[in-house]
Design a protein around this nucleic acid. Sequence first.
DNA 1: CTAGGGTTAG
Length: 632
Amino acid sequence: MLCTPSSLYLPPSPKPNQSYLRNSHSPTSEHLRTDLLHTFNSPFELKQVHACFIKTSTPLSVLPLLRVGFVCAFTSSFSYAQQIFERVGKPEIFVWNSCLKAFAEGDSPIDAILLFYRLRQFDVFIDSFTCSFVLKACSQLLDVSNGRIVHAFVEKLGFQSNLFLQNTILHLYSSCGAMGDAQMLFENMSQRDVVTWNIMVTQLVKRDDIEGAYNLFSQMPERSVRSWTSMIAGFVQCGKPKEAVDLFVQMEEAGERANEVTVVAVLAACSDLGALDLGRRIHEYSNRSGFGRNVRISNTLIDMYVKCGCLEDACRVFDEMEERTVVSWSAMIGGLAMHGRAEEALRLFSKMTQIGMKPNGVTFLGLLHACSHMGLINEGRRYFASMTRDYAIIPQIEHYGCMVDLYSRAGLLQEAHEFIMNMPIKPNGVVWGALLGGCRVHNNIELAEEAIRHLLELDPLNDGYYVVLSNIYAQAEQWEDTARVRKLMRDQGVKKTPGWSSITVDGVVHEFVAGDETHPKTEEIFQRWEKLLEEMKLKGYVPNTSVVLLDMEEHDKVKVLHRHSEKLALVFGLMNTPPRTPIRIMKNLRVCEDCHAALKLISAIVNREIVVRDRNRFHCFKNGSCSCRDYW
DNA sequence: CTAGGGTTAG
């Protein structure tokens, strides 16, 4: 087999710890470049170093053996390395194992596999450590074929009872998606420990089998923090943040202390739920536990505060970070965009590039969001062009979605349509949906019908598109067409997702569904609403019933309108929180025009800040206006 | 010198 390392050069060691070669008075300096000791890249250079060592009576143990291994393993000098290792006085396999570990954990795990074959070729004695590192490399590469070969070696060498190796093999099969093999191995293992179970739980989660994962989790004879964390992270990943939080509470009750990874997972759950109280509590816990400088935790905190509507807190976390990654910048830029603060998002981006931080695709998604939310057409165009030209980032379908959204919202519907037709990748439901949304705002029935033709094919079960279309017809007073859309929905078995809003008061989440009269405080809520309504009317509020699609009398439409979930949640919030405190509401759908107008007026009447987290952005109502500047 | 969990987008 031809063995060539995946990269010709290893990066030099960060800090040479032998300083006497750097000393200019040393006789070695004229024979040996000072940095060569740690950076030799060929057997020839190695021999130069070696010769110098002999001349200066330097012990061979000073040689960086990982480098010797790397340089010799893939050249004809394999036996040269063997000779050196012999003289260093360490068992040969010990040194090769260190090389394997470095390769397996570095950025070229393939080299570990290649080295393994070299070791076999030279009849080097293989031990259990060798197998574990090569197996790790196979897992990293999702290379189950080579993994099976190593597995066979493990059997042949009689390591069946080595639990470490069994776990590594289990990890190999499960992480490569060979769940059948993994399952069989798991069931046949003569002994298992907590790691065995954790591997299974984690991998089942990764395969989207959350039930299977939780089933195993429940059966575990003992659990470690990692078991809890895997399961919590699993619930977050599959969109069940409530379950994640519940499990976290159980974990605390079980007396297990959260570590950094747990904190990240729970904070992510808080972001999804908009659970600000818990988020703050975890933030304090994290600081108390000394996790304050963990970059990933800070990144997740930024996102948590952003999604809980506390942009200022997010900024504070960002500002106080000692070290920031591209994720930190992207999270902050995306957060500003979500809150409609486009100028600041763009400014942050230039600051980012000024300090030499390289943006990635997600950064640009945030920027494009900022532009589309605020109608910055030219800037959006510029950034879209720049990402490929200046940063070699290939736009993904999400970026195209943003661009179509940008054009469509701004009313450039023809451009949006042309843009879709010229896309190098197949447009998805989000892309056509963005065009459809623009058609509603700008009343373009023809293009809306074009969009829906594609949407019926791409995403026929998504109720949102039908609703938007019937909205468009309703606005044009084409009632037969709205009826037709309703029939289409019935035929397809699609039902409109009920709108709900939630508000947290004193740590308790109150949920309101549109039209809901089951809340114990319903009577008081309606009374308070009627009072508010009078004041709103004095300020010029007129119910906008065009958003009600049901076929009914006008005054019934008004009734439906006034039972929209965000209105219920808001009134409940006004009744149950101290005056002047901000009110935060979460909503599963987008805010309708009527609620938007109503909330603006109410914010002025009651002199409160009302923050609403919509399906795709934030609205911050204050003194009668909204942070989205009515562009959404 | 050996095994298992984590962040931005949706």
